[in-house]
């Protein structure tokens, strides 16, 4: 399995506080990975760095077969290169319909002029409707996304991620605030997605992580503490000390 993303030796400091400390991480092209760790372990900052929101003080972030340096790119370029991100809180455009949200996310040329001249083709509509089916929002397409329930917004956001057709999905706490049934649906969506692309899930909920049934990386104080199957890491004494033991 070839490597899709390789992060090596990154560090970042905020006003003297070392949020990420010599962290290295890699993931393959079609792989599911869960990241766990206590609050302040650097999970969100790690995602910020990969998506270009935060610049690390040192280290390298290498992407894809052509080994592109992501640190030289801005957020939108990274997104277009194939990294999609879902935030902790659902961030959909509440003022716009589900359809508009999904159309905006569809993988298309993103320059202002081409967007200005864009007309929805029947292919695009089909694609959106297929996605809506997948995330269970087919009936909600003409509704304003602000009117959706919390879980539906989460799905819509996952749907938007999928519409982007990224090669790597970064998902921050997708199951937060969901009912058990909704969680199951979310798990299914992510597992399905991981068949064709890399998916990184940050999650606190061990049950959810267990259901994902994938390799787990444990972050602590800005570095990787342990890596392996969930059973393997939960047996690790360090992990128990810093995280699970508490």
């Amino acid at each position: 399995m070839s490597t899709l993303l390789e992060v090596s030796g990154i560090s970042v400091t905020f006003d003297g506080f070392r949020a990420i400390n010599n962290l290295s991480f890699r993931i393959g092209t079609a792989e599911m990975r869960a990241i766990i760790g206590p609050n302040g372990a650097g999970k969100t900052t790690f995602m910020d760095i990969v998506t270009g929101k935060t610049r690390p003080d040192e280290g390298r972030v290498i992407w894809g077969e052509k080994s592109i340096n992501l640190l030289k790119m801005n957020e939108s370029q990274i997104a277009r290169a194939g990294i999609g991100r879902k935030f902790q809180r659902p961030t959909v455009f509440e003022d716009q319909t589900v359809l508009e949200n999904l159309v905006m996310a569809l993988k298309k040329t993103r320059t202002p002029l081409s967007v200005l001249g864009y007309r929805r083709s029947s292919d695009d509509i089909d694609r959106v409707e297929a996605l809506a089916d997948e995330i269970g929002l087919r009936a909600e397409l003409p509704r304003k996304s602000g009117e959706l329930a919390h879980g539906q917004k989460q799905w819509l956001e996952i749907g938007m991620l999928l519409a982007q057709e990224p090669r790597l999905l970064l998902v921050d706490e997708p199951a937060a605030g969901m009912s058990p049934a909704e969680r199951e649906h979310t798990t299914a969506l992510l597992v399905e997605a991981a068949k064709t692309r890399a998916v990184v899930v940050v999650e606190h909920d061990m049950e959810f992580v267990r259901r994902l049934n994938c390799k787990v990386t444990v972050f602590h104080e800005g570095s990787v503490l342990a890596e392996g199957s969930l059973d393997h890491v939960t047996a690790n004494q360090h992990v128990i000390d810093v995280y699970l033991g508490r």
Partner: peptide
């Protein structure tokens, strides 16, 4: 059209639009 969608998106959540791959500054 979609352009309107994008700029309203920028108005409401600039960072999100950026992570969708749109170069917000150009818009």
């Amino acid at each position: 059209g979609k352009f309107g969608s994008v700029i309203r998106g920028i108005r409401d959540d600039e960072a999100r639009v950026r992570f969708l791959g749109y170069h917000v500054e150009s818009y």
